[in-house]
């Protein structure tokens, strides 16, 4: 079984974003970029399935600028066998990303697609679900455990109030939550080897997809800053303030 895994190039999660002074977007110039953390978990899960003998091939797929090659090389250093870049400039909307994955999923006859549940830039949490809808396949979102068994996969999902396990017929789409696994670090010899692994370039036009704009970004602003309050010296003072001043207890 082939596994497709999604990789998105995003701002490194340790970097604080700044809004551009003209409020058109956030300023990403000279900013450290990395694999989206949830995508890293997806790559790790796919590699583990290959190590367990369940997957025959792991293909990392990214939709984005040519700079995304860097993140695809990282995914291959971690263990993906090859990579596909759907090259596109600027922000690509989730539905268009899902359409690209649907095409590649069909071309590669993938049995399982593992994606991060959301990217830490646009925070949409949509692509996996949209891909499942477009391909008419089942979905297991926010996964904390994935067990492939023959022609089905059991997915334990993080839901409000606890965990829910569902069973999906393959091919299926899974999106990762934080506790699914702890991603490994790439080793130097593997980083060298990854440079020689195949990386194919394609585009929306090559895939026969018409890119549509659904949501227009009008303005980006910094959020209203919350003002810090006072420091209190003791528990007694804190309780008194909460009772008499804030009136919340």
């Amino acid at each position: 079984m082939k596994i497709l895994v999604g990789v998105k190039r995003v701002i490194d999660y340790n970097v604080k974003v700044r809004v551009k002074s003209d409020n058109t977007d956030v300023d990403l110039s000279n900013t450290k970029m990395a694999i989206n953390p949830f995508c890293e978990i997806a790559v790790e899960e796919a590699i583990r399935l290959k190590e367990a003998g369940i997957a025959t091939e792991v293909i990392a797929v990214s939709v984005g600028s040519s700079a995304s090659q860097e993140q695809l090389r990282t995914a291959m250093a971690l263990g993906a066998d090859r990579a596909i870049l759907v090259e596109a400039e600027g922000t690509v909307e989730p539905l268009n990303v899902a359409k690209a994955f649907a095409k590649i999923m069909a071309q590669e006859e993938a049995g399982l697609v593992i994606l991060g549940k959301q990217s830490i830039d646009s925070d949409n949490n949509q692509v996996g679900q949209m891909l499942a809808a477009l391909t008419k396949r089942p979905q297991g979102t926010f996964a904390s455990n994935v067990t492939v068994d023959g022609d089905s996969v059991s997915v334990t999902r993080e839901i409000d109030g606890g965990l829910r396990t569902i069973k999906l017929a393959l091919p299926a789409i899974v999106t990762t939550d934080l506790r699914l696994n702890e991603p490994r670090f790439a080793k130097l010899p593997d980083i060298m080897k990854a440079k020689r692994k195949p990386l194919d370039n394609t585009s929306f036009a090559d895939l026969g997809i018409e890119v549509k704009q659904h949501i227009q970004l009008d303005k980006v602003e910094a959020p209203a800053a919350r003002q810090g309050g006072v420091k209190v010296g003791s528990v007694d003072e804190l309780i008194q303030k909460l009772k008499d001043e804030a009136k919340v207890i």
Binding site: L95, N125, Q126, Q129, R157
Partner: peptide, 23 residues
């Protein structure tokens, strides 16, 4: 926005061939 709607609404949007506004 909750774990049910986050799971379901993007699916609805894709079936309608429209975008989704999250959160």
């Amino acid at each position: 926005a909750n774990s049910v709607s986050k799971d379901t609404m993007p699916r609805v949007a894709a079936l309608l061939d429209v975008g989704q506004l999250s959160d």
